[in-house]
C-alpha cells in the first residue's frame, strides 16, 4: 500500500534528512517511526502525506505516485486518503470544535447534512461532543487532540498519520490519545505514528521503524507483551541501534 523506494530528502547544505531509505507498509498496519530529534521521522511523514517531495526516490501510496503530485493534486490526495494529527493540534482558534472537524469535508465538497452527521458521530465517539460549539482555546490538551483526531478521521482516510500526537500532552491526556489510537487500529485503521516515545509506540503499533541520521537502523515487530524485536533480537527502548 505504501512504498518509499530509495528516498533521499536533502535541505540546502548539510547531511540529508532522509538518506536513501526504502520502506513498505501494508494496509491495516500500525507503524511507529522511532528515532531521536533530527533523525528524519517527520520528514518521512511529510513525504507520505504529500506535504513535501523527496529529492530523489519515489513515494507510492495506493498506487499513486505522491512524489509527482502538484500542490492542487496533493491537496486532493490528502482530502481523499490522509488524516493528519499534529503534535500541537493545529486546530484553528477562530473556528468552533464542530467547524474545525467539518472543515476537511467542506473542503472536499461533501454535502452539509452528511458532513454534519459524520462530525457529530465522530465527536460523540471521541467523547468531545459536548464541546461542539466551544472554541479550541477552552479545551484541555487531551480534548484538543481528540478534536484533532476527529478532524483527521472526517473524510474516512485510508491512512492516519500522527506526528508526535502525545508530545504536547500531560500524562493523563497522553494516555487518552494512546487508547484512542489503539482502538482505531483495532478497527482496522492503517496508522503511521511518528514518536520518540517507545511506550506509545509499543502500545499503539504493531511494527516499529527506527531512524537515525536519516537512515533506517531497525525495522521490528511489537510483540504481544510489548517488546520490540527485529531479526530475532529484542531492542531496548532508546538504544537506537
Amino acid at each position: 500500500m505504501i512504498e518509499l523506494r530509495d528516498v533521499t530528502r536533502r535541505y540546502d547544505e548539510g547531511p540529508p534528512a532522509l538518506d536513501d531509505i526504502s520502506v513498505s507498509i501494508a494496509p491495516g498496519e500500525a507503524v511507529a517511526i522511532l528515532g531521536p530529534s533530527g533523525s528524519g521521522k517527520s520528514t518521512l511523514l511529510n513525504l507520505v502525506a504529500g506535504l513535501d517531495h523527496p529529492t530523489t526516490g519515489t513515494v507510492t501510496v495506493d498506487g499513486v505516485r505522491v512524489d509527482r503530485l502538484g500542490e492542487a493534486a496533493s491537496a486532493r490526495y490528502r482530502r481523499a486518503r490522509i488524516g493528519l494529527i499534529f503534535q500541537f493540534f493545529n486546530l484553528l482558534d477562530d473556528l468552533t470544535v464542530a467547524d474545525n472537524v467539518l472543515l476537511p469535508a467542506q473542503l472536499a465538497g461533501t454535502g452539509r447534512a452528511d458532513a454534519e452527521r459524520r462530525a457529530a458521530d465522530l465527536l460523540a465517539r471521541l467523547g468531545v461532543s459536548r464541546h461542539a460549539d466551544a472554541y479550541p482555546g477552552r479545551l484541555s490538551g487531551g480534548e484538543r487532540q481528540r478534536v484533532a483526531v476527529a478532524r483527521a478521521l472526517m473524510n474516512n482516510p485510508a491512512l492516519l498519520l500522527a506526528d508526535e500526537p502525545t508530545g504536547a500532552l500531560d500524562t493523563a491526556s497522553g494516555e487518552e490519545v494512546r487508547k484512542l489510537l489503539t482502538e482505531l487500529h483495532a478497527d482496522g485503521q492503517t496508522i503511521i505514528l511518528v514518536t520518540h516515545d517507545l511506550t506509545l509506540a509499543t502500545a499503539c503499533a504493531t511494527r516499529t521503524i527506527r531512524l537515525l541520521d536519516g537512515r533506517v537502523t531497525a525495522d521490528g515487530r511489537v510483540t504481544a507483551d510489548g517488546r520490540v524485536t527485529a531479526d530475532g533480537r529484542d531492542y531496548a527502548a532508546g538504544s537506537g541501534r
Binding site: 506535504l51 491537496a75 486532493r76 493545529n90 484553528l92 476537511p104 473542503l107
Partner: peptide, 16 residues
C-alpha cells in the same frame, strides 16, 4: 501563514 499551512494540510487546494 501557519493557519494557511493547516488548511492546506487538510486538503485546501491552491485555488481554494
Amino acid at each position: 501563514v501557519h493557519d494557511l499551512g493547516v488548511h492546506k494540510a487538510l486538503g485546501m487546494t491552491p485555488r481554494q
